[in-house]
Simulated assay, not measured.
Amino acid sequence: MELDISERSVRRILKNDLGLHSYKKKVVEPLLSDDQKIKREKFANWIRTNFRKEESMRILFSDEKFFDIDGVYNSQNDRVWAIDRADADKNGVIKQKRKFPQKVMVWLSACSKVVTPLVILDEGTVDHAVYIEKVLPVALKYGNQVFGSDWVFQQDGAKPHSHHLTQQWCRDNFPSFIIKDRWPPNSPDLSPLDYSIWDELVNTINWNKVQSETTLIQQIKSSFKTFVNQLFLKVVLALPIDCIVFVKTMETICANKNNPVL
């Protein structure tokens, strides 16, 4: 408008003369503060110094995720073919979401050899007491079954995890664990559950059958059985490689031309 050029001319200049293409913005990584970058750098160097390949394969990764009855959709791939916009709206192109959808929290852990059972946390607020009572014993049981007395438990920096009683329970029971001050903040890309397993599980759920919290839990449980049977070799046994990627990811995130880690 400032140059008094038509939109068609601008598009022609952008595409034909300049050879440019239009790209959608994508959220590909969390926004990190300078302090968070420093903590990631320290963590990456700590991993590189203290964990060899075989040791990284004995990390039991854990995470929680909220599932709600509105389900998920992919704004790029989930499409409706229609004559016009009104017809598309009529046939479900608009994804409706409730203001306060029913939801449940699910905990899961995985390592190079096993995926533990799900722990459904559907009783309201999950504080450190609930976490200690219902989650940590499951992690301890399966970690000991798979690795004996030589393995490392990982959890992120959520408040129930960083509570002093939770940290004390971990010190008293786990052979080793990553303490609250070690795991870097804002780190959804550092665990294989975040960058692989949760997405696979979400896509296995039949969301058309989810109408309430009860049916949501039923679908999560049944889909998890299918997920484990179909994707165990693909996802879980690939974790030794993913553990290397886990380290390299932090090195890449932390490294820059002014302050390289490598």
Rank of each mutant, 00 (worst) to 15 (best):
N74V: 04
L31K: 12
N144V: 11
Q230C: 10
Y195K: 04
I220Y: 04
D68M: 11
G19W: 08
L193E: 08
F174Q: 05
L237S: 02
Q155P: 03
L216N: 03
V80F: 01
L14I: 09
E41S: 15
P137A: 11
V119L: 01
Y73S: 14
D87K: 08
Q96P: 01
M1N: 08
K159D: 02
V135C: 10
L231M: 12
I197N: 01
G71K: 00
L239A: 10
K159P: 12
D87E: 12
K248I: 12
P260H: 04
N258T: 12
R40W: 07
V202P: 01
V245M: 08
R79T: 15
L136F: 01
K248N: 15
D127G: 02
P30V: 13
S196H: 05
Q96L: 15
W183C: 05
N77D: 02
L31S: 13
T214G: 02
L136E: 00
H21V: 13
P117N: 06
C111I: 03
N208G: 00
L262Y: 02
P160I: 13
E200R: 14
T125R: 13
H128V: 04
L136Q: 10
R8E: 14
T49H: 06
K113C: 12
L237N: 06
L239P: 03
E55Y: 03
P260M: 11
D17W: 08
Q167G: 06
R98G: 11
W198Y: 07
T116V: 05
P260T: 09
H21N: 14
D199S: 14
L190I: 15
N229E: 14
K134Y: 08
L190W: 08
V104I: 07
I38P: 09
R171K: 11
V130S: 04
D89I: 15
V228N: 01
D199E: 07
T214S: 11
L140R: 03
A129V: 15
F51P: 04
K113H: 14
H21P: 01
F147S: 09
K42E: 15
G124C: 03
I83K: 06
N258Y: 13
N173S: 10
T166P: 09
L20C: 04
K24H: 11
